[in-house]
Design a protein around this nucleic acid. Sequence first.
DNA 1: CCAAAAGTGTTATCGCTACACCCATGA
DNA 2: TCATGGGTGTAGCGATAACACTTTTGG
Lengths: 235, 235
Amino acid sequence: MLRRKEKTPFYPDATPILQAVDCIIFGFERDEIKLLLFKRKIEPFKNEWSLIGSFVEPDEAVDDAAVRVLEEHTGLQNIFMESLGCYGEVDRDPGARVISQAYFALIRLGEEETQTVETLQARWFDFDSIPPLILDHNQMVEDALEKVRRKARYRPIGFELLPEKFTIPQLQKLYEAIYQRELDRRNFWKKIQSMNVLEKLDEKDKSTSKKGAYLYRFVQHRYEEMVEQGIDFVL
Amino acid sequence: MLRRKEKTPFYPDATPILQAVDCIIFGFERDEIKLLLFKRKIEPFKNEWSLIGSFVEPDEAVDDAAVRVLEEHTGLQNIFMESLGCYGEVDRDPGARVISQAYFALIRLGEEETQTVETLQARWFDFDSIPPLILDHNQMVEDALEKVRRKARYRPIGFELLPEKFTIPQLQKLYEAIYQRELDRRNFWKKIQSMNVLEKLDEKDKSTSKKGAYLYRFVQHRYEEMVEQGIDFVL
DNA sequence: CCAAAAGTGTTATCGCTACACCCATGA
DNA sequence: TCATGGGTGTAGCGATAACACTTTTGG
């Protein structure tokens, strides 16, 4: 393992650069996709709105740094997270030359999470009221949202934003929020049923209608079987 | 501008890390997609097969480093290049802790390029004969190929691999190489014609048949008009 | 004149879209 | 009983896939 400031015989002419990770955190609540932002704790730009981030430690993989950052700031583990891309302009951070690797995470919002996370210096924002962020973080958010929109159509990442048990109308609301347009109830139903990736439960959710809607669960292995059969997931 | 080893008042506790870029270079020749590899010039692993790469300079954007690397090794400019992703495991390079940002590039292969590039320590490889590469470079190549395959279907990146003037059968051969399956001549024809992104020239290429095939040119602005009209590019 | 690749049209099928109707139930 | 959201079926249309025929020309 390499230690800080230890010299190695190789690459003597190369200059090390500060490496950061930043994490774009999406949630879904009351038919809206939300973004979790934090008040920055260090200078420069202390107390301004920002994504969460951290520098990559010398003995830590970049992916691991992203996971660590998310856990440190939200207490959440086993969250869906994926690389978004590298932000490497020379002057992007006036504090120093910093290269940032951006990640986006999708969080299931229950009542607890909403509370917990907002305890200190953090807040969920609707997309039409995102404040100016530090550095190139607004750009990162825009890029992340576009990536989620494109990806949700062909990969079952939407389920990461819903609680484990959800109703079909809830799922539809989510996709309507992602695509920013209304979908036809019946066609959506047929589509999702035809893929056979949901398990119907015996419970009903009566919070939004008198009749009540059946709860479902996403079944990962059914999705994998579907892919193996060469059937495409498209929603 | 920041200089090497210059101290800044911010982020005193963070440890800088070496940042590299590596470039996966694809070409297309005689109905095959090829990969350009180089003999590594520095230790460790000197003289083994490798992607081209370089460390990112402190006053250089990461994207710019990728462009520089490509030009330094091939002499080519204005090449299609896109970010692939970050490779950031701690022990990926035994020479030092190095984080690499991978890029893939698509090159038009004419006779000149084939010659020029092969002058020193470089060679085009078919995919069934790629040698073991240093570090995680085999993984990068695999990831890049998958990304190109997925992307080619919805974006007109295939044209980057063809000479400026090409025939429809040539284009089809390219897509067959990308997708690894045969396509129907007539359906391919209809599809590409219906999108109206090609300009038919008065010349014919007689190298592959007695009858000869008309040459075409990809017209960028027609593609953009198509996108504006909400029509999808799909091949 | 024939082999071999280029160029074009026609039909069947599948998936998506649009739309209409019944169900369950709390107020 | 009625208003509201849940659950299901069907007909039309457009895109794709499968497939057959004509054209050109060097040998």
